[in-house]
Simulated scan of single mutants.
Amino acid sequence: MKKTLLITTLLASAMMPVVSQAFGNRDAWVRGNAQGSAEYTILGKGQSQLYLACDSYGDKPEMLIFTDESGRQVSTDSNQRIMVKIDREEAADVSETASHAGAENFVWMWDKLRTGKQVTVSGDGVKSASFTLKGAARILPEYIDSSCVAEFAR
């Protein structure tokens, strides 16, 4: 009887979906490294998250992924528009880095993330969300010292 119960429990738990905790913190920026990428992220309300990644070897272009409160995502490799507004600055389009203008916007955003107080991100098919920039300068290196590479420069 105990053996049958144990086997049933093991089978049932193996069939249940695994719930993973999102990488990040709601109150502070976090840095991590995974599979050759430097990752920087912060969580917001609901499922919202702002995630930046730079390939440590310069083989892949820099990436930004924004997830809204309900879990919908846009990213720099999805051909969808992503806008960032930092403090009282004009919103900038950071959707791509395949062009010089797009790459300049990404560098502008990176530098402002390090010096600003709040970023609001919006995009095609997602609701906007705001994130604190408190402590971002301690986590995000200066852009020139990061391993980020624009798509056009690869």
Rank of each mutant, 00 (worst) to 15 (best):
Y51M: 06
T41W: 13
S95C: 11
F66P: 00
S122T: 10
W110N: 06
V84E: 11
I139S: 03
V149E: 01
L64M: 10
D111P: 03
V30M: 14
L140R: 08
A98G: 15
S70T: 10
Q49L: 08
S146L: 10
D93K: 03
L64H: 09
A137E: 05
D145I: 08
A38D: 13
S130M: 04
Q49I: 02
A22R: 05
I42S: 13
Q118S: 13
D77N: 15
R31D: 01
K45S: 14
I86C: 07
P61G: 01
I82T: 08
T76R: 12
D124Y: 01
Y40K: 06
V30E: 14
S128D: 07
G24A: 03
S147D: 04
F66R: 01
Q118W: 07
E151Y: 05
V74E: 12
V121M: 15
F106H: 13
A136F: 12
S37D: 02
E104C: 05
A91G: 08
Q21W: 14
S48P: 11
K127Q: 14
N79D: 12
P141W: 00
K112I: 02
A101K: 14
L64K: 09
G24N: 09
N25A: 05
A28C: 05
S78W: 11
S20H: 15
N105K: 15
G71N: 05
E96I: 09
L140T: 06
A103W: 03
L43I: 09
G71S: 01
T76N: 08
Y57T: 15
W29K: 03
E90M: 03
V126T: 12
G32P: 04
G44Y: 11
S20A: 13
E151D: 10
I65H: 00
M83I: 09
T115N: 11
G36Y: 01
R114W: 02
I86F: 06
A101L: 15
W29E: 03
E104V: 07
T120I: 10
W110T: 07
R114S: 06
D27G: 15
S128Q: 12
G58I: 05
M16E: 00
M109Q: 03
K134S: 11
N79P: 00
D93G: 12
S56K: 13
M83L: 07
V107P: 06
S147L: 03
L133K: 09
N33Y: 01
Q80G: 05
Q35R: 08
G135R: 01
V18A: 15
L43F: 09
D68H: 04
S147I: 00
D124L: 02
W108Y: 08
G71A: 03
D87G: 09
A101H: 13
H100F: 02
G102K: 06
S37H: 10
E89P: 00
G36I: 00
K134F: 05
T132D: 12
R31T: 01
S95T: 12
N25S: 12
T76Q: 05
R88L: 01
E89V: 00
E39W: 02
Q118M: 12
Y143F: 13
F23D: 11
V121H: 08
G46K: 06
E151K: 08
A91T: 01
V19A: 15
D68W: 06
E151S: 10
W29I: 00
V119K: 02
A103R: 03
K134G: 11
T115E: 14
E89Y: 08
E96T: 11
K45P: 07
V107H: 08
A92H: 12
G135W: 05
P61A: 11
K117S: 15
D111W: 01
L52D: 08
A137G: 02
G32F: 05
